[in-house]
Simulated assay, not measured.
Amino acid sequence: MIYSMTGFGRGEHSNEAFDVTLEIKSVNNRYCDIIIKMPKKLNVFEDRIKNKIKAQLSRGRIDVYINLDEKAFDNYEVTANYDVLDKYVKIYKDIQARYGLRDDISLTMLTRLQDGIDVSYLERGEEEYWRSIEPALNQAIERILEMRKQEGQQLKNDILSKVESIRKTLIIIEHQAPRIVDAYKTKMKERISELLSELNAELDEIRLANEIAIYADKTNINEEIVRIYSHLEQIGKILASNEPVGRKLDFLVQELNREVNTIGSKSPDIDISNLVIELKSDIEQIREQIQNIE
C-alpha cells in the first residue's frame, strides 16, 4: 500500500477529568521529523507520543498539537490529626484536674490547635493524564493514515499512468532506432560514391562496412532500452508492495533519467531526440510525485 507523506488527523477525548484535542499534520520530508507542541505538564509523555507515531508513520515532517482542558476538582483533603488532638485533650484534662479548673474543652479550641487539622493537596498521576491523551492520539493517527492512504492511491495511479506513457514512447524509439544505421549507411555510401566518381576510383566495400559498424556501435541504444524496461517493471512491483517505498522509487527514477540522457546523447536522429524530451517530461513528473511518497 502506497502512502502519501501529506495528511491531517484530529482526535478528541473527554472524561470526568479532561477534555483533550489532538491534531497531527504532516508534509513531505526525507526523514521522520516529529515536532510536538503541548502544555509543559505533558512533556513527560513526549517520547511515548513520538514512539506511537513512528510505529505508524515512517517519513515526513510531522507536527503534533495537543490542547488539554483540565476540569475543576477538589484537589485537597482535610483530616483530623487524632494522635495530636488526643495528646492535647489529655494535657488539658491533667491541668484541669491538678488546678481544679471548670472550663470545658470546646470544639473551637481544638480546631485552633497547631497540627490538629491536616490539609493535604492532591495531584493527578501521570497515568491519569495518559489515559486521556492516548485515545485522542490513536484517533488522530488513524485519521491521518486514512488520508495519507487515499492520497497515496492517487499518487500511485498517476505514476502508473506516466510509466505506461514512458513504455509507449519507448516502443516507438525501439522501432525507430534501427533506421538510424540504415539511413547513415545510405547517406555515407552516396557521399563516398559521389567523391569517388570524381576521382575515377572504386568503392572499398569492406572499409565502408567497418565505418558503418563503428557508427552502429556508437549509436546503439538497445542496452539502455532494455534497462529502462527493467526499471519500469521494478517500479510497478515496488508500487504493489506493502512497505515504505519512497527512497527506492527515488533511486529508480534517477536511473531512468540517466538511461534516457544516454539515449539522447547517442542518437543523432531528430525524431528520437524529440521522443527523449517526452520521456524526460514524464520522468520529471514521476520524480515530483515520488517526493511526496512515504
Rank of each mutant, 00 (worst) to 15 (best):
I214F: 14
N242D: 15
R10T: 04
K93G: 07
E255R: 03
N157C: 06
V226G: 01
K41R: 14
G152W: 01
F73Y: 15
L199C: 01
K41I: 15
R59I: 12
L160T: 08
P244W: 05
D94Y: 05
D217I: 09
E123S: 10
E223D: 07
Q139V: 11
Q139L: 14
I290E: 01
S165V: 05
E211C: 02
L113W: 10
H13D: 03
S193H: 00
E127C: 02
V276G: 01
L68S: 10
I133P: 06
L68D: 09
P39T: 08
L252N: 00
E233D: 15
D63P: 07
V89P: 02
L279R: 03
D94T: 10
L203Y: 03
K40N: 15
L145Q: 13
K93H: 11
I66D: 02
R30M: 09
D103F: 10
Y229R: 13
S161D: 05
D103R: 12
E194T: 00
H231W: 11
V44P: 01
R48L: 15
R48D: 15
R258V: 02
Q153A: 07
L107G: 14
E259M: 07
E174V: 07
A136F: 11
I286S: 06
R207Y: 08
E294M: 02
E12R: 07
E46T: 13
N81R: 13
M1P: 01
K189V: 00
T21W: 03
M5R: 04
Q291T: 03
A177H: 05
V276M: 02
L249I: 06
N29K: 12
D33V: 12
T262W: 06
I221W: 06
S161N: 07
N67A: 12
I144V: 13
S26V: 02
I270V: 11
S165M: 08
N157L: 14
R30V: 01
D250V: 02
H13F: 13
H231P: 10
D217E: 15
I53K: 09
H175T: 09
L279H: 04
Y229S: 10
Q254S: 05
D204T: 03
K149M: 06
E126A: 09
N15I: 04
R143K: 15
I35V: 09
E278V: 10
N274I: 08
L68H: 08
I172E: 12
P135T: 14
D204P: 03
S106N: 11
S281R: 06
D250Y: 01
F45V: 10
D269F: 04
L279W: 04
I53S: 10
Y184K: 07
E202H: 00
E259Y: 09
Y88M: 11
I144K: 02
K41P: 00
S281M: 07
V44T: 13
N51F: 13
R10N: 03
S120V: 14
L239C: 10
A17D: 09
E223N: 04
C32A: 14
R207Q: 08
S165W: 02
S230L: 05
L249K: 07
D74P: 14
N81G: 09
L195S: 00
L85W: 01
E146C: 01
N242G: 05
